Simulated assay, not measured.
Amino acid sequence: MARQLTLDLTMPPASSRDDFLISGANRHALGMLDQPEDWPGGRMLLIGAPGAGKSHLAGFWADERGAHIVQGWTLNPANADEHVPQGGAVVVEDGHEAGGNPEAEQGLFHLWNLAGARDCRLLITARAAPRDWGIGLPDLRSRLDSAAQAVLAAPDEALLPAVLVKLFADRQIQAPPEVIDWLALRMDRDLDLARRLVSAMDRESLAHRRAISRRLAAELLDKLTPPDP
Rank of each mutant, 00 (worst) to 15 (best):
S23R: 00
D192L: 14
V91G: 04
G41Y: 12
G87S: 06
L216N: 03
G59Y: 10
A52Q: 08
E103Q: 14
P138H: 11
W73S: 14
P40I: 10
A153M: 08
I180P: 00
D156C: 04
Q4I: 12
G24Q: 07
L221T: 13
D38K: 15
A52K: 04
G107D: 06
A52E: 02
R141H: 15
L167P: 05
A67E: 10
P12A: 12
D190G: 05
L206M: 13
E157M: 07
A175W: 02
D132M: 11
A29K: 03
A25S: 03
P161I: 02
D19L: 03
D34R: 06
L57C: 06
E93D: 14
A128W: 05
L7N: 11
M32W: 08
S16Y: 06
P177N: 07
A128K: 04
W39M: 05
E157Y: 11
D94F: 01
L122C: 09
G31N: 02
F168H: 07
A2E: 15
A211W: 00
L123R: 01
L108A: 09
E97F: 09
S55H: 08
F20E: 03
M1I: 12
T10Q: 15
A58Y: 06
L108F: 06
G134L: 05
A207G: 10
A129P: 07
S199C: 00
L220I: 12
R186D: 14
R209C: 00
R65N: 14
P12C: 06
A2M: 13
L191W: 00
Q172C: 06
E178M: 14
L160Y: 01
R214T: 15
R121E: 13
G48M: 13
G66R: 03
G87Y: 07
A14T: 12
L7S: 05
D18Y: 03
D132F: 01
D132Y: 04
A169P: 13
D63Q: 15
V91T: 12
P130M: 02
R121L: 12
